[in-house]
């Protein structure tokens, strides 16, 4: 495993991300990761706040239109995240907080997928209790992913 991670880190692509003085290397990839974060978490925040009972004028099934935007934001973050990991694979794979981030992220994406499926069935006036709870959990998981991601630079 260590050999694999070292060879990933030693690859030409990883070295370019890590060492190139070009603005298009590390700086742009890191910035894209933040742009993606704003799209993914931003879209989820809109959905979750509506499900928690704010902005009742927004029809809940209309929120489904936000999911393609959310998934395209996630695609940006998956691609940029893989590159950032490659650049520093041996260090990042040894960080416990990295796995906390991955766990929060995976659970938050599962929550988003469940919410998007549930929104296909038009419900009545009130949002069911379990869907509200899922929205609250989703917000906490995204907050957790942000904190864990930020702490990777410190721990």
């Amino acid at each position: 495993m260590t050999d694999l991670l070292s060879s990933i880190e030693g690859s030409t692509l990883a070295a370019w991300v890590r060492e190139s003085p070009s603005i298009w290397a590390y700086a742009t990839i890191l910035t894209l990761h933040t742009v993606g974060l704003a799209i993914v978490v931003g879209a989820n925040v809109v959905v979750d706040l509506r499900l928690l009972g704010w902005a009742k004028g927004i029809p809940t099934e209309s929120l489904r239109a936000l999911f393609p935007i959310m998934w395209s934001g996630f695609a940006i973050n998956f691609a940029s995240g893989v590159l950032l990991f490659m650049a520093d694979a041996t260090t990042k794979s040894g960080q416990r907080v990295f796995y906390v981030k991955l766990a929060c992220l995976t659970l938050a994406l599962l929550a988003a997928r469940t919410i998007s499926k549930r929104l296909r069935q038009p419900d009545g006036e009130a949002v069911p209790g379990d869907l509200r709870a899922l929205a609250a959990v989703s917000l906490l998981l995204w907050a957790g992913a942000i904190v864990a991601g930020r702490l990777m630079a410190y721990l």
């Binding site: 933040t34 704003a38 799209i39 931003g42 879209a43 029809p59 239109a65």
Partner: peptide
């Protein structure tokens, strides 16, 4: 700061996109 930007860009962006004429099912 990252949580704040998610709130700000997510919610403002949703309204901006509506102003641009998308998501018309939402007033």
């Amino acid at each position: 700061h990252f949580m704040g930007l998610s709130l700000l860009i997510g919610i403002t962006g949703f309204f901006d996109v509506r102003l641009m004429g998308f998501f018309r099912r939402v007033s």
